[in-house]
């Protein structure tokens, strides 16, 4: 797998831009369920596709760039910290699950969403210094399962439509 650094950089940049746009689109969707922390996570589609078409490093870079940029642009510093903890944990879990080769992209996405919520909740509980925040855990777990499966189905659809010539590294 030899490729020029320039190609790599532009791949990551393109994917990160796409993920950032998805973050923005996510903000535009007016859905309020009344509980903070529940969101669709459509930006994760890009990260997951990056993980499947390229490698862990690419997906990781895309995710970090996306979160930092979204933090600077929309969410603010603390939003970025929450998102970073969730994003890194979720990507690690998704990478490990993908590596076992036992799960489909839907299962990987589902677990990623759940662990994203778990990571955010843990950091939030640490910052607020109140374990009471874990009362939200069941809500976030179930919402993670649902949104994760939804995004996974979208990922599966997208992934199976990418022509195989683009899947070469």
């Amino acid at each position: 797998m030899t490729q020029s650094p320039a190609k790599k950089v532009s791949q990551v940049a393109l994917l990160a831009t796409l993920a950032l746009i998805f973050s923005y689109v996510e903000m535009l969707i007016p859905y309020s369920v009344g509980i903070p922390g529940i969101k669709l996570g459509i930006a994760n589609i890009v990260v997951l596709i990056a993980l499947y078409t390229y490698d862990f490093k690419t997906a990781f870079s895309v995710n970090i760039i996306r979160i930092l940029m979204a933090g600077l642009l929309f969410n603010g510093f603390f939003g970025a910290i929450y998102a970073l903890s969730g994003g890194i944990l979720s990507l690690l879990v998704m990478y490990l699950l993908k590596k076992t080769d036992k799960f489909s992209i839907v299962g990987v996405s589902m677990c990623g969403a759940v662990f994203h919520n778990l990571g955010q909740l843990t950091v939030a509980a640490m910052i607020v210094q109140s374990p009471k925040l874990f009362l939200y855990f069941p809500v976030l777990l179930f919402s993670g399962i649902i949104t994760g499966i939804l995004m996974g189905i979208i990922c599966h659809t997208i992934y199976s439509h990418i022509p195989s010539r683009y899947l070469t590294r």
Partner: peptide
């Protein structure tokens, strides 16, 4: 996959 259902 089967493993997905198990995971779920």
């Amino acid at each position: 996959k089967k493993a997905d259902i198990f995971l779920l």
